[in-house]
Design a protein around this nucleic acid. Structure first.
Lengths: 237, 237
DNA sequence: CGTTTGCTTGATACGTATCAAAGTTGGTGG
DNA sequence: CCACCAACTTTGATACGTATCAAGCAAACG
C-alpha cells in the first residue's frame, strides 16, 4: 500500500491561523514554523492504517480525510470526515498506541505532518496549544455521539439524509440547480458512512433521485431539495 | 424533575489521586481543595438534563453515571457509562453550550461538583490539568468509535454480548457461580445501550439464559460463561 | 478491446420492530 | 397481612426494513 507522496511545499503562511498554531504568539510561531513539514497527498491515499504504530499527527490544511475502521469480515465503517483545521491521529499520538482507525484522503489533501515526539515537545513548550486539542476532541465526541444516536434508532433513509447534509456543510458548493457535494465519493463510501450495504445505499439514493430530492447524474451528487432532505433527516420524513 | 440531594461530605482526601487532581502538587492541591464541593446522589437521579444550560462539571468519585440522549419519539440511547475517575459534563462546560446529553446515576454516586467558572479558573491556573481532560476525552472518543462500529455492522446479540462484558469490566464482582454485574439495570437500560427495543433485548437475554451463558434470576445479572460471551462478542458466535 | 471497477436492479431470507396481552414483582395503604 | 397498583418482564403473532445472493450494465482504463 503506497502512502506518502510529497509534492512541493505550499506557503507555510497558510496555516498561521489554523488551530493549534493560531494559539501561538508571533514569536512562538516563527520558532515553531522552522521545524514544520507540509505535505500534499493525492486523493484516495492512506495517511496511516488501523494498527500502525503511532508515527505522526496531521493537521489538515486543505482537503478531507475519512477515519475508517476495518472489520475482519471485510466491511468498513467511516467514523468521521475531517476537514481543514482538524487534527488527525491525535488518539494514537497521545496514548502512544497503534492508530485505532485508518486515515484515508477523500480528495487531494495538504497537511502539516508532526512527528509524535515533536508534537509532545510542542505541547510541553506551548501549553496553550492543548486548548486546540481539547477543542478538536470535543468536536469529535459530539459528532460520534450524533452518529451513535443515528445508528441506534434511525433507518437508513434518515441516516443517509443526515450524511448528505453534513457532507454538503463540509464541502458543499452552491449551483444553480442545487447544492453540489464536492467530494469524489463512491456508493460504497456512502454506505460505509451510513452503516449499511452498497445495495441499500444505492436503492435509497435512487428513491431520492426519483423523488427529485437529489441528482446523481454525470457522477455528480447534487442536493436539489434541501428542505425535503432536512425534513427526512429531522423527522424521518 | 428533582435532581440534587446533598448528603454529608465524604473525606475529600479520597479524590486526591483522581485525575485531574492527581496532576497537582501538594501545595496546589491544598489550595484547590478548599473550594471543592463533594456531593452524593441517590440511584436513578439526573445530574443534568439534555438541553440544560451548562452549570457544573462532575468528577465521579464513586458510582456510575449513564450519558443518555433522548429523542422526540420517546426513545433513549445510552452513549456511555462513566465510572470513578471520569469527568461528566465536560463538553458543555468547555464550549459553553447546553448539555448534549443527560447524566443519570445508575447507582449511588459521589462526585466532585465544579461550577463552570471555577473549572475554567482552575484550568487557567494549573494548565497541567488539561492533560487529564484530554485523557478523558480520548477515552470517550475511543469508546464511541467502538460503539459506532458495533451499531453499524453487528447484530443485537453481539452488541449485547459486548455490553455485558463491558459492564462486567466496569462493575463486575466475582462470585462462585460467575461474574455478577453489580448495577441495578432494567431491560430497558440494556436495550438503550444496545440500540434496540426492550422486547428484543429480553428475547436475546432469554436465549442466553437458556444456553447457560447468563443467569438472570432474583433480579441479578450474572455471566456464567465468560468465554462463550467473548466468542459471541468477538466473532458474532 | 477486453478487463476491471463501480453502479444498478431483482428475488429472497432473515433479523428486528411493532402491536398486543398476560405474567411477575415490589411497594403502598387500608 | 392482604389487596391493589404501577412498573417491569415476558411471550406470541405479524409486518417491515435491510442484508444477502445473483446477475446484468456502464464507464474507466491499460
Amino acid at each position: 500500500m503506497p502512502t506518502v507522496r510529497t509534492s512541493e511545499e505550499p506557503a507555510l503562511e497558510t496555516i498561521r491561523n489554523v488551530p493549534p498554531f493560531s494559539m501561538l504568539t508571533e514569536d512562538e510561531w516563527r520558532e515553531v514554523v522552522r521545524t514544520l513539514t507540509v505535505r500534499t497527498y493525492p486523493e484516495d491515499t492512506y495517511l496511516f492504517f488501523e494498527g500502525d504504530p503511532p508515527s505522526n499527527l496531521y493537521v489538515i490544511v486543505q482537503g478531507h480525510v475519512a477515519l475508517i475502521r476495518h472489520t475482519l469480515e471485510g466491511r468498513d465503517v467511516v467514523l468521521d470526515v475531517m476537514q481543514p483545521g482538524n487534527m488527525v491521529g491525535e488518539l494514537a499520538i497521545f496514548e502512544g498506541v497503534p492508530y485505532s482507525s485508518s486515515g484515508k484522503t477523500l480528495d487531494e489533501v495538504t497537511a502539516v505532518v508532526i512527528p509524535r515526539e515533536r508534537f509532545h515537545q510542542m505541547l510541553a513548550q506551548y501549553p496553550r496549544m492543548a486548548g486546540a486539542v481539547i477543542f478538536d476532541l470535543t468536536r469529535r465526541v459530539r459528532h460520534l455521539s450524533d452518529l451513535v444516536q443515528s445508528l441506534a434508532i434511525e433507518r437508513v433513509e434518515r441516516r443517509l439524509a443526515r450524511i448528505l447534509l453534513r457532507l454538503a456543510r463540509i464541502s458543499g458548493e452552491h449551483r444553480d440547480d442545487g447544492l453540489l457535494i464536492n467530494l469524489p465519493l463512491t456508493r460504497q463510501d456512502l454506505a460505509d458512512m451510513a452503516g449499511t450495504t452498497v445495495e441499500t445505499a444505492i436503492r435509497t439514493l435512487s428513491r431520492m433521485r426519483r423523488q427529485g430530492i437529489v441528482d446523481t447524474s454525470h457522477g455528480h451528487l447534487i442536493i436539489r431539495d434541501v428542505e425535503r432532505l432536512v425534513r427526512i433527516a429531522e423527522e424521518g420524513e
